[in-house]
């Protein structure tokens, strides 16, 4: 009996602690959501809960487009994120597969190089990237989107470590069996490896979508004064400038809530594949 009670007390204590931690963790998100529905204007409020609620902040984002065209920024970002997601997921998976399965001389040096390059922050090359893109003529008009897609997907192959690690766990015997049956490397990759590695593919797709979706610094440097090419990150940042902050702060929160929606949808659609892709791969 006393043993049971101590266990109960322990459980209660642990759950209380977890509840407090969960509250602390969710608190800022909750605050942003509440602010996005706040009817009072301005960036500063003296009360935690809004005095009254409204949908106007969301409506303003989509109707008041003459100053900050949020729908257009949203579409720009969506297009850029989808294309760079497809490209970089492909690059990452291909590079990881090659490094995991093919034996070639530069394999080790390449991995070392990628490791060292990965240590530098990507924005270090920002200005150089800008001038290269300018030399190619990609810094004006709609070509800016192409430039951003190239930026976000170009370096993707350096981030192979995690999926290479995953591919390493897929038994080589399967590949060998397929080779003996006359499969090419490409067919092994598309027909055997990819179906077996759904979790890591989902992970790769999610991260390569979120990178461009949330990026600010490259978009800022490359878009410069082309307002029609702005991404949501730049738009949200603009809303906090001193001229706009008082009128746009609650819409800023609404925008912040909205940009989490595509990521959430993507995750919900893909999460059912997060099961163990390897179950029952090798028999015996």
């Amino acid at each position: 009996m006393s043993h049971k009670t101590t266990k109960k007390v322990k459980n209660i204590a642990v759950h209380c602690l977890l509840a407090v931690l969960a509250f602390i963790w969710v608190f800022p998100i909750l605050w942003v959501v509440l602010t996005s529905f706040r009817a009072e204007k301005g960036s500063y409020v003296s009360t935690f809960l809004p005095q009254s609620y409204t949908f106007d902040n969301y409506i303003k984002l989509f109707t008041d487009t003459s100053l900050l065209n949020f729908p257009q920024m949203f579409m720009n970002t969506l297009i850029i994120a989808i294309f760079s997601c497809i490209l970089s997921a492909f690059y990452v998976l291909s590079a990881s597969y090659c490094l995991s399965r093919l034996k070639f001389k530069l394999r080790k040096p390449y991995m070392n190089m990628a490791m060292i390059l990965g240590l530098f922050p990507s924005f270090m090359s920002m200005i150089a990237v800008y001038f290269i893109l300018k030399a190619v003529g990609l810094t004006e008009g709609s070509l800016i989107r192409v430039a951003l897609i190239l930026c976000y997907s170009g370096g993707a192959a350096l981030g192979f470590q995690i999926s290479k690690g995953f591919f390493d766990t897929i038994p080589k015997e399967i590949d060998e069996a397929a080779l003996i049956d006359g499969c090419t490397r490409w067919r092994i990759f598309t027909r055997i490896t990819i179906p077996l590695s759904k979790p890591i593919i989902i992970y790769t797709i999610l991260t390569s979508f979120m990178g461009p979706w949330l990026d600010f610094i490259f978009a800022k440097v490359i878009c410069r004064a082309n307002a029609d090419q702005y991404t949501v990150a730049i738009g949200l940042w603009k809303m906090l400038e001193k001229e706009y902050i008082d009128g746009w702060y609650t819409s800023f929160a609404a925008g912040a809530v909205l940009i989490s929606i595509p990521i959430a949808i993507l995750f919900l659609c893909l999460q059912r594949f997060y099961v163990d892709g390897l179950s029952g791969a090798v028999k015996g």
């Binding site: 009072e40 301005g42 960036s43 500063y44 003296s46 902050i245 008082d246 702060y249």
Partner: peptide
Amino acid sequence: ADGSGIAGLRDGS
């Protein structure tokens, strides 16, 4: 700071 001035003007404080 952080817009507290204009918010105070708004609520009369």
